[in-house]
Design a binder for these strands. Structure first.
Length: 492
RNA sequence: CGGGAGGUAGUUCAGCUCGGUAGAAUACGUGCUUUGGGAGCACGGGGUCGCAGGUUCGAAUCCUGUCCUCCCGACCA
């Protein structure tokens, strides 16, 4: 157990907070619900962003940027979307401050500077983007529009948690416009697939792709696809969503195109997004009581070298080998940090890099080097081994692959052993309460039943898996007939 | 929005009951000894005690108001 980190078994949410703060990922700010993402945490986000951005471009999308402010009249155009977000919107009402005549050195909002129309700080950008698409789309030749934006959004949540739910967060939101329903649905599914691939191959996070139930669906969507992941404490986390918006926004903003037969038609839409919440998922999926555990592909530096030296000429030799390894790995695009700071001792560095989740630590010391050896420690299993200097770089590269794979396999085994079937209400309640994880059960398809289950157990329908097999059954609560099982869980 | 905890050094916190010189640990700086699992000793710098009033000879401490944060719950596309 590491200095100052609450063990998971003692208090899972304190453990989570300790990791975020002590690994240097983020801090609370003086603004309620808003966090400061520190360089180490931001570096992880940059790696996520770069990988996703590349995937978006490979699937034909381009980036653009729309304003953070949405005039209220635009925001309210799509009623369901507006209603869904209304109660968590920050609103700009004034554009100027002035000196407080009654309190020197203080400022007050200038009542003379009230805006004619309030500006909503975007909680999501469908409204302002579709207002633009209206101007961009005349003909079927203008379609599809495949745009993504990297942005911050604000949702005034009642209760916030670092990375998992903050009042302001960073994300990407894709907004596409299509001529046909089929093409839009294809896009929705394609991007959900991109998310699943990213989660599994980069984050080492196994996910279940599925559809949301009516009550969990995005406000303004016809269908919401999602990727759902399971955290170590048995709670589910929605890691990404991709929405088929039908013609709802096209109708709200009057976006029509002329088809090849000279007839006006409404445009079909999708939107999809993932956020800095993924960093929360990353933490809770892999880390342990010693600290963070990062997948090599997203670690700011997958390898850290700790030189241990006693003499000047020894130091020279050690650093020469460290730099050689650094250069070899750099050629493969792998960042290596050499920590030659001499104000802290090796033991401190070991603990520090374990806390920060660096996948591989290499110790190069004069003692082992006399025998041409170095020490290699892997963070995922906490195993240490000694290796020959010759061939070290090649070994490290293959070790990083191993770790990436092991992290995923471990999380997948955990996830798979935590999907259980329930066939009666008693079984269901018992599994949700005592085991956690996903519970696969029949449901009659109604929102009433879903609500009642939630009220009784706090479990919600996470998704209806895409590859669901069809089987006759009866709803665990109402006993009414059902054609397939859905996944329930308590969720973040 | 309900319930709980809290705001004192960069950080974690003690001091408050019972008013009287602003404290510890850690971090930081300097020096020496150290360096293979969170080093030791010595010296040193560092604070409008969240903010505003009030009581008092005197307030971190008592009273009133106010702002903010965290945790639990409700809420959460």
């Amino acid at each position: 157990m590491s200095k100052g980190i609450t063990p998971r078994a003692e208090n899972y949410s304190n453990w989570y907070n300790d990791i975020v703060i002590k690994a240097g990922l983020a801090d609370h700010s003086d603004v309620r619900g808003c966090m400061i993402i520190k360089p180490y945490g931001y570096a992880i986000w940059e790696n996520m962003r770069d990988a996703l951005d590349k995937m978006f471009k490979e699937t034909g999308h381009m980036n653009a940027y729309f304003p953070i402010f949405v005039p209220k009249s635009l925001f309210e155009a799509e009623e369901k979307n507006a209603e869904g977000f209304a109660k968590e919107c920050a609103v700009v009402t004034h554009y100027r401050l002035k000196n407080d005549p009654n309190n020197e050195g203080k400022l007050i909002v200038d009542p003379a500077a009230k805006l004619e129309e309030e500006l909503v700080v975007r909680p999501t950008s469908e409204a302002i983007i579709w207002n633009s698409y209206k101007k961009w789309i005349q003909s079927y030749r203008d379609l599809p529009i495949l745009i993504n934006q990297w942005a911050n959004v604000v949702r005034w949540e009642m209760r916030t948690r670092l990375f998992l739910r903050t009042a302001e967060f960073l994300w990407q939101e894709g907004h596409t416009a299509h001529a046909t329903k089929e093409e839009a649905i294809e896009e929705t599914e394609k991007m959900n697939n991109v998310y699943a691939t990213f989660a599994e191959e980069w984050m080492g996070l196994p996910v279940i792709q599925g559809l949301k139930s009516d009550s969990e669906r995005f406000a303004g969507a016809e269908e919401t696809y999602c990727i759902e992941a399971l955290m170590q404490d048995g709670k589910a986390l929605q890691a990404g969503t991709s929405h088929f918006l039908g013609q709802n926004f096209a109708k709200a903003f009057d976006v029509k195109y002329m088809n090849s037969e000279n007839k006006d038609e409404y445009v079909w839409a999708t939107s999809w997004g993932v956020s800095t919440r993924l960093i929360g998922a990353l933490i809770m999926a892999h880390s342990d009581d010693k600290g963070l555990v990062l997948p090599p592909k997203l670690a700011p530096y997958p390898v850290v070298i700790v030189p241990i030296t006693k003499t000047d000429e020894g130091k020279e030799k050690v650093l020469a080998i460290a730099k050689e390894i650094q250069n070899n790995l750099k050629q493969k695009g792998i960042q290596v940090k050499i920590d030659d700071a001499d104000n802290v001792r090796p033991g401190f560095k070991f603990a520090e890099y374990e806390l920060k989740g660096v996948p591989v630590r290499v110790t190069i010391g004069e003692r082992d080097l006399a025998n041409n050896l170095i020490e290699v420690a892997r963070r995922d299993t906490n195993e240490k081994e000694t290796k020959e200097v010759d061939g070290a770089s090649e070994y490290l590269i293959s070790l990083l692959d191993d770790i990436q794979k092991n992290i995923f396999d471990r999380a997948k085994t955990f996830r798979d052993t935590n999907i259980r079937e329930a066939n009666t209400w008693e079984e269901f309640e018992n599994l949700i309460e005592k085991e956690g994880g996903f519970v696969s059960a029949h449901w009659d398809g109604t929102a009433e039943t879903e609500d009642e289950i939630k009220a009784k157990t706090k479990a919600t329908i996470r998704c209806i898996p895409l590859d669901n097999k069809q089987e006759e059954g009866t709803c665990i609560l109402s006993g009414k007939p059902s054609k397939e099982r859905v996944l329930f869980a308590k969720a973040y």
